[in-house]
Each structure stands twice: as C-alpha cells, then as structure tokens.
Amino acid sequence: MSAITTTDRVSLDRRVPAAGGLNPTFVRIEIKRLMRNKRTVIFTLLMPAVFFLLFGLSNKDQHLPNGQSYGGYILISLAVYGAMTAATAAGSMVAVERALGWSRQLRLTPLQPAAYIAVKAISSLSLALLSVVTEFLVGAAFGIRMEWQIWLVAGLVAWLGSLTFAALGLFMGYLVPSANVMQLLGPILAVLAMLGGLFVPISVMGKTFGDIAKFVPTYGLGQLARSPLTGDFDWMWIVNVVVWLAVFTIGSALAFRRDTKRV
C-alpha cells in the first residue's frame, strides 16, 4: 500500500472528456434525484392522475361533436399538465444546485455548460415522459378508449412540448435565488393550465377568457396535443408554442450567462 514507486507518479498527460462530460451515468443519477423528491413525484406523477379520476372519469361516456371520447379530451389535457409540471420541476432544480454551490463545484470539473444544459433537458424530458405514460396508463385502465394513433401523437406532443416548460424551469431556476422555486412555480403553473384551457375547455370559458387563453403558454400546446382527437388544427397554435419556447429559452440563456459571469 505504502510502496510508492516512480511509475506511480502523478501524470500530467491528460485527455479532455468526450461530449463535454455528457454521459448516461450523469443522466441516470439526475433522474434518481428527481424521483427521490417526494414533492416532485406527488405533483408531477400522482396529482395529474388523481385529477383525471376526480374530474375526467365522470365524463368518460360523453362525446365530443365529432363523436370522440370527452374523457379522452380531459385525459390528454391533464397529460399536458403533468408533462409541463414535470419538465418545469426538473428544470428548476438548478435553483437548488446554485443555492448549494453545486453549480460552482461543477465548474471545477471538465463539464461544459452546454453538456450541463443537455443533461437538464434530458432529465426534464424523462420525467415528463414518465408523467405522460402514467397519466395514459391510468386513463386506459379506467376505460378511456381511443385509436392508437391518437394515443401516440397526443402523447408525443404533450411530451416533447414540455421542453418549453423545461426552459421555463431553467429560466426561473436561474432568476429566483431560492431553493424553493417550485413552491412559487407550482401555483403559477396551475393558473397557466387553467387560463390555457387544460382544466376547463376553452369553449366553455366565455369570450373574454377565451381571447386571453390564446396568449397563454399552455394554450397552443394543449390544442395541438388534443388535435388528433378533435380533428381541429390552427397554425396559430404552432405560433403560440414556438414563441413561448423562444421566450423561455432566450430568457434562460441570458440568465445562465449572467450567472456564470457572477460566480
């Protein structure tokens, strides 16, 4: 043990890691951390499913004008809600990491900032996917029936659309100097979900709220996710999603740059 030979000398001939330090173990541990947080599990996986059982199940046998399941409509809306909450929660973990000095510690490793953001995006999408799958499994188990293409496309839109909210989470995580950022964001997300028509259909919201809804970040995503079911489509929904994705991404990029300069 104490036999130190000259061949055991500290080497200075070193390599730089591939992909800026991005690797599967990092992603796996990040997801493990998310699942360890009871509050995150409750708000992103359990609550949307419970909402469906409380508010969706009773409408299971009602139908949309085109004959599709109204219960399915509610299920997809809540899947969008679950995915966005999951992605926001995962993104906002940077607030905790900054408060603990972990971000600073990471700057003493070869990890590149872009790789760090990529890990956050991947872990956000992973939790969002888990939320969508959980929601859909609960819906299917309680008798929601839709064509498989609708499940697939609606699920993909809800899942990938959550990237907008991963960016929102990152943005707020860098902006709010508190580890409890989700206690602030949780209610905000619920209000956004309400105004954007995820809890109540736009059609029953009345003219004023119906007009406001069009500018809310959850609106375009909800409409697009339900599009395979309703058969409706509007380019303005795409515009809504793209604009908000751009706003939150640019916001988080600016906040990130300010943060790295200051540390």
Binding site: R15, W102, Q105, L108
Partner: peptide, 16 residues
C-alpha cells in the same frame, strides 16, 4: 480543469 490537471477543495458548499 478540463484535463483534470488541477482540482480543488473549497471551504463550504458544493455538495448535493
């Protein structure tokens, strides 16, 4: 740092 030639032990924080 990228080559792992230098590392540091800071006074506080830096742990999850």
């Amino acid at each position: 740092i990228a080559r792992g030639q230098v590392s540091a032990v800071m006074q506080t924080g830096g742990l999850l």
